[in-house]
Amino acid sequence: MNKLELQKTANEVRKGIVTSVHSAKAGHPGGSLSAADIFTYLYFEEMNIDPAEPKKADRDRFVLSKGHTAPGLYSTLAQRGYFPVEDLKTLRHTGSYLQGHPDMKHIPGVDMSSGSLGQGISAAVGMAISAKLSGDDYRVYTLLGDGEIQEGQVWEASMLAGFRKLDNLVVIVDNNNLQIDGPISEVNSPYPIDKKFEAFNFHVITIDGNDFDQIDAAFKEARETKGMPTAIIARTVKGKGVSFMENQVGWHGAAPNDEQYAVAMADLEKVGEALCQM
């Protein structure tokens, strides 16, 4: 996909995020919107996957370690054809397969159940180790929140990934700078994030995570990096694309009401129209 197509797709992914969270009357739009470009790039450009065969043995794997941003993942999977976009409206509804956090048992395309922060990266490390053990060449991607890296388990997993030189693993940190209780730098600062991963023997790339040129360059660089895992520190805007949600901590885990939903969709329609003029 070229950059424009990626941008258009990401905008559709954002619509799905807002729509699903609005329908659920609960969920996490902020961190889903900030990571929408990363999700889109992974599933439409980077990963070797086949929506018709979600469990294909040699597929690349993705673990959403920051599992609360499931709306972002689900919307991307739906756009990619794993399940109907219409189903996004059943998010978090009783009986729906679209659980509040990723559920690998019931959702096509979900490679690992996650949601309890800090655990997904360990599973991703396990997948990468497994590939190395059997000489498989699939790659493993995992997306973490910048607040999530306060969890000690993240560093247990990173130590093992660096030590075992897992160059088939890419850890992406969605660095939108906000967690539930406020800016990460005010709650319990994990900065400097890049130096931490460097110290754990990662190749570190810092980018604007809402810029497809930089995203594209970073994943290409990760692919060429041998002998060590890559950490991409993606600086993003929480709530990206919805005017009243951008950089607002209150939209970490809140659903828009009907009026807010209309405004949000109008914002995204406007972006979509602008992209069509390009």
């Binding site: 360990s122 396990g126 997993a157």
Partner: peptide
């Protein structure tokens, strides 16, 4: 690092 070990085991199990 037992917590990580269990997670790594889970990841390995997903691959068969």
């Amino acid at each position: 690092a037992e917590c990580n070990m269990i997670g790594v085991a889970a990841g390995i199990a997903t691959t068969g």
